[in-house]
Write a protein that binds this DNA or RNA. Structure first.
Lengths: 246, 246
DNA sequence: CGAGGCCTTGAACGTCGTCAAGTGGAGTGG
DNA sequence: CCACTCCACTTGACGACGTTCAAGGCCTCG
């Protein structure tokens, strides 16, 4: 696991900027943070349950996910992360990981020392607020995840998750003509949704034959957004998307 | 809905103190916050989806819960809150509620202006860190909630939730001889666990006849902690409990 | 050309949901 | 003090949705 290049935190700045107008002091502080770039293979766990991380990872490209293997041996996936996300920002204040983080496909991350972030948030309360907000939106997404698993049938669960991922990836600028990258297997979908792999397959077929979506070779194509949204009863309020400030 | 008494934020200070030694400046800041006490009846919603709150509530006594009614009409409960919790701390940085908050039984809350909290966290980064940490532990509990719903059968779900609530209420100093207050109906348990009320009833009977617990008149009694824990495959790491500093 | 993932599909089974009826306890009013 | 009401809890019967088991197909990569 190589990598040693130090660079600016462009991805992070690009994400925070629309929320608040950063002062030049704040920008300088963010840009002076040392970031170590690392390339990870697909289908690899790079943060383990029980660890006490000293680094945080900013996803620069690729998809990651948080999960935990229960004592029963079954896996639950808690969230899926796209470029611009910092899936383990919680390590700032919680020292022991209660879950693991892995990659869905090849991922490049920017590793940042937690201490460096701590210094910045101590000096720049507004940056602290922006990062805090990130963790709160993450929690809101978790609530939607719960409702999905708890109170929806198989078709609705899949449709709802696909709606969310389609919006989030589009928001991150990854969409092209109704298609977004989504390098996820049916087994991973199953472990996200509390279903069996077989059932995910059947429900996907439903959505496919209803001409709502296509999902092949790591790409999700939405053929009928309104139809998909209706199946899922999707309401994106919980994503707390703010219009980009010009 | 009366109430106008202003008082100190004892409950909050008591909770934060074990985590970090607060300076006298920090303590003074916390104690100077104006808190409006309000009494709420049981089974009442006091924060609604879609609102933009200007106040945060610190629970002083009683039990509250976060939930959302889905478009299908079904309810999903996301979390249960006990005295010392601030269930809507997210309002600090997220302006529109994506869920509602209600009471399980009569509750007294301390209402605090969000602006007041914002001023404190801007000036006192360590207090900001403590509150931030609260929201992160809340997120960790949400993840356990997901795994419960997604990858456990009915008996395990109930046992696991009861384990969590028993520990948390005990931690808050509410236990007496193996019993803790738990004023929750079977319907509310069902909406927490993604089950039907009938199934909750059956599974509770299982746990009762196995001599693991009793749950009557708002009180949970754990008769066989190890047995309950074993059914649930419970591991409390995710609660991130820190030993109290003397 | 062979191996290993991942996807696909069928059949049988089981857990849990739905429907329905009845019990019990607390609070209310005659 | 005793009906009466309301609500939570309880239990049985039945059916559905989703799981499990098993087998086969497809694609990619070595």
């Amino acid at each position: 696991l190589p990598g040693r290049a130090y660079t600016e935190v462009h991805a992070l700045v690009r994400k925070l900027r629309p929320l608040v107008e950063l002062t030049s002091d704040e920008l300088d502080a963010l840009r002076s943070v040392q970031v170590q770039i690392r390339s990870l293979e697909g289908n690899t766990t790079f943060v383990n349950t029980g660890e006490k991380p000293t680094l945080c990872c900013l996803i620069l490209s690729g998809f990651a996910y948080r999960y935990r293997i229960l004592d029963s041996g079954r896996r639950q996936i808690f969230s899926i992360h796209i470029p611009g996300d910092i899936p383990d920002l919680q390590s700032l204040f919680i020292d022991k990981m209660d879950h693991s983080i892995g990659t869905l496909n090849p991922v490049t991350v920017g590793l940042i020392h937690i201490e460096a972030i701590r210094q910045i948030i101590t000096r720049y309360p507004r940056i602290a607020g922006l990062l805090w907000r990130e963790t709160l939106v993450d929690a809101a997404i978790s609530r939607a995840w719960m409702a999905r698993i708890g109170r929806r049938n198989a078709d609705q669960r899949i449709a709802h998750l696909l709606c969310e991922l389609f919006i989030r990836t589009s928001q991150a600028g990854l969409s092209r003509q109704g298609s977004v990258p989504l390098p996820i297997t049916q087994t991973e979908l199953a472990d996200s949704l509390g279903l069996s792999g077989v059932q995910v397959n059947r429900s996907l077929r439903q959505l496919r034959t209803a001409k709502l979506i296509e999902l092949r070779t790591g790409t999700l194509t939405v053929l009928d957004w309104d139809g998909l949204r209706e199946v899922a009863l999707f309401d994106e309020t919980y994503l707390h998307i703010r219009a980009h400030v010009a």
